[in-house]
Amino acid sequence: MPPSKLVLIIDDDSDIREAIRDLLTVEGIDAAEARDGSSGLEYLRANLPPGVILLDWNMAPMNGAAFMSELSRDAALSRIPVVVVTADARAGQTARAQGLSTLLMKPIDPEQLLEIARRHCNGEGSSPPPR
């Protein structure tokens, strides 16, 4: 069984980061946190690539759009799947226009979140998480 990858949560709201992480943990998925775009990039450059990045779109100082353009410049990093998390439908449209097809609207649907995390992070043939 290939080792399972973790989920990188980039969000400037610590409550949201913690809540997503707790939910992933309880379902047996590991997570790492970054509090904005630039610390997300720092994490990515120093660690093994995560299975998927959950990216808050409206952040300060480095927002989702700026993070994406940085990411796309790095050939190694640009292959990592990114899912945009936002409460703002307009921001969602902007993200779509940048070619990001997966969107999670706030409040986040836990089933959808877990489905995404499992798809990207659990290797082939991994056992389903205990329920």
Binding site: D13, D15, I16, D22, L23, V26, P107, I108
Partner: peptide, 17 residues
């Protein structure tokens, strides 16, 4: 929506636990 989202996720964690 932000604290609401966090709250609902925590409730989910609680429920699953």
């Amino acid at each position: 929506k932000t604290p609401l989202a966090a709250m609902l996720l925590h409730v989910q964690v609680l429920l699953r636990t």
